[in-house]
Deep mutational scan, measured.
Amino acid sequence: MALNTPQITPTKKITVRAIGEELPRGDYQRCPQCDMLFSLPEINSHQSAYCPRCQAKIRDGRDWSLTRLAAMAFTMLLLMPFAWGEPLLHIWLLGIRIDANVMQGIWQMTKQGDAITGSMVFFCVIGAPLILVTSIAYLWFGNRLGMNLRPVLLMLERLKEWVMLDIYLVGIGVASIKVQDYAHIQAGVGLFSFVALVILTTVTLSHLNVEELWERFYPQRPATRRDEKLRVCLGCHFTGYPDQRGRCPRCHIPLRLRRRHSLQKCWAALLASIVLLLPANLLPISIIYLNGGRQEDTILSGIMSLASSNIAVAGIVFIASILVPFTKVIVMFTLLLSIHFKCQQGLRTRILLLRMVTWIGRWSMLDLFVISLTMSLINRDQILAFTMGPAAFYFGAAVILTILAVEWLDSRLLWDAHESGNARFDD
């Protein structure tokens, strides 16, 4: 018995066209964080690309023209004298008006014999932002004059995390709450300039795509075929072959399989920071003279006294001054041990922890910024005066060393310790 099946006739004509040209192939790229070699397709503007294995951002879609970056830099340069030299806060102490600005706080630190601690604050609040705007201006002028731009481009990517104007702005709020127990506070004209400078700096850093600047100024022929001998440069993120001198053909720094002496430098910085954190938390970090009496505060006791007036601000200072430094030390110690013992479990967790400490590390400088600003506000000789204690130097040095330890660690070593050939990683 035959089955009668109805015929289905399409209502619209289906047209099949042959592909007349070869589909576009992607360029081969190595991930600078996990060293995976993959094919990167062509990316349009405002599109980002991520590593298929570790999800690290390979290409950032946010990109401004150099002219727009230069305009932002010149605007920031105009704001800087007002943000640093004009009063941020006014207080009335014992019937006398006192003005506080950024430069005055750094000068008070240096004047009291601790120039190293003052230079830490100076670099993060004044030096690094000033280098940022002058570097962008150098790129703008240098591109037109045919100057060598490689050193500036190499420095810009590392400079971003040292620009800490946003953290200093939080420190202004913390210092205001600490001082309000002794005097009446009012915002100064410099505060508005400083807030504007923070906003412009944040926007500029978020749109400063150094890798795209490398592509514009020093374009290189990408690798179009897969080759395990391809290496990625950690300076400019170019994937290719080393030249005859073993250097990256684009930025001219040595092109090595792994960062040289990464573990040794990381261990040295980490152990030194552990040693410095002990006096930083045991010795007094601030000293207040009130009517001839002397009151010393460690980091913890200062947080407890701050909690009596504002528990939320005390929580912020606790996280930045105690929780973050010790968390960074514990995480980095764990990561280094996992590399030495070739741990194969929990790779995803370790990668996330490394990215976390990379982002939060700079916030530990908050305590030094609060001390710097408070020193310029309260300084009335023996009637009422505020000065920093010996722990300030140890704390600042420990924070900087932990930042350097994270920067010096080559994250690809975590993958080397893991089993080879993993296309995915999980716990």
Rank of each mutant, 00 (worst) to 15 (best):
S338L: 10
P254S: 08
T75C: 15
V275E: 08
Q345S: 10
R221Y: 07
T11C: 12
W107M: 13
P41Y: 11
V232R: 08
T298F: 06
N209L: 05
R350W: 14
C236V: 00
S321C: 12
G26L: 12
N310W: 04
L89N: 07
M164T: 05
W84T: 10
G315R: 14
M375A: 10
G246W: 04
R226F: 13
D35M: 04
R380W: 05
L149S: 14
M155G: 04
G235E: 04
K57M: 13
I167W: 05
R350T: 14
K342S: 10
P10I: 07
L149E: 04
W214H: 11
K12D: 08
E211T: 10
E86L: 02
K111R: 14
G421R: 11
L401G: 05
R250L: 04
N209Y: 05
P325Y: 01
L263G: 08
R412F: 00
R68M: 06
Q33N: 14
W363D: 15
R256A: 08
C34Y: 00
I378P: 00
A49Y: 10
C34R: 00
R294G: 03
Q7G: 11
L139Q: 02
L40T: 09
L169H: 03
V198W: 15
F123C: 01
S309Q: 05
R259L: 11
D166R: 15
G293T: 06
F333Y: 08
P81H: 11
V370G: 01
L156D: 15
D60P: 11
V232Y: 13
H340E: 08
L66F: 10
G389F: 00
F393E: 03
S305C: 06
I287E: 08
V125A: 09
L368D: 01
G190F: 01
L277G: 07
Q264H: 02
M388A: 06
T15I: 11
S262K: 02
P81I: 08
D426I: 12
R53W: 11
R294T: 03
R59F: 07
R150G: 06
A187G: 11
I19D: 10
C343E: 09
Y394W: 10
E211L: 10
L77T: 15
G246K: 11
H418F: 12
V203D: 03
E157I: 14
G113V: 12
G292T: 06
S309C: 07
S273Y: 02
G389S: 02
G26Y: 12
D227G: 08
P81C: 06
F386K: 00
L414V: 13
M120D: 02
H252G: 04
Q108K: 11
A196G: 11
L377Y: 15
S420N: 11
V195W: 06
F38M: 10
V179W: 00
A392H: 01
R59W: 10
P284M: 05
C266S: 08
W162M: 01
I403T: 02
K111G: 14
A183F: 04
A187I: 09
V16M: 09
K111C: 02
G240F: 06
L89Q: 08
A417P: 11
G292R: 08
R250I: 04
A175T: 12
L306T: 02
I199R: 01
R59T: 13
S206R: 15
L93R: 01
R355S: 12
I285T: 04
Y241H: 15
Q112H: 07
V203K: 06
G95I: 02
L205H: 13
W107D: 15
V189K: 15
R226W: 10
L40A: 12
R30Q: 12
H237T: 06
N148E: 06
K13N: 10
A280T: 10
I199G: 08
L384D: 00
D426K: 15
Q295A: 06
D410E: 02
S372A: 10
L353D: 01
I19F: 12
I360V: 11
A320D: 10
A83M: 03
P41L: 11
K178A: 00
